[in-house]
């Protein structure tokens, strides 16, 4: 049965989503986003298995590559802001509002 894997994927996705909402550290928030992407990967691979096609597994590789690129960009931005503010808290960066 593949349902378990889908449920796990959904759980991971939800954990990632909630993590984005509750964590303050930008790096952790970002890792939660990565968790969501990997939940997607799990879903893709599961469906590939379920439907008997290879596409899903190939897609997972694509997603990994994109995620890697995202990591590069994300870390660059977060590190810069950390250097400026001496803080990686996303709540500190709230000058732009209203």
């Amino acid at each position: 049965m593949t349902t378990h894997y889908l449920v796990l994927s959904a759980l991971l996705f939800a954990i990632g989503g909630v993590g984005v909402l509750v964590r303050r550290n930008a790096i952790v928030v970002f890792m939660c986003v990565e968790l969501m992407l990997n939940a997607c990967n799990l879903a893709f691979v599961t469906f590939a298995r379920q439907n008997g096609s290879l596409d899903g597994q190939v897609i997972a590789f694509f997603v990994m590559i994109v995620a890697a690129a995202e990591v590069v960009i994300g870390l660059a931005i977060i590190v810069t802001i950390f250097r400026t503010r001496r803080s990686a808290s996303v709540d500190d960066a709230s000058l732009l509002k209203h």
């Binding site: 984005v20 960009i73 994300g74 802001i81 996303v90 000058l95």
Partner: peptide, 11 residues
């Protein structure tokens, strides 16, 4: 402001 915008947009 610019860095903050980048971070918000990115996340």
């Amino acid at each position: 402001l610019s860095q903050e915008a980048a971070m918000k947009y990115f996340l």
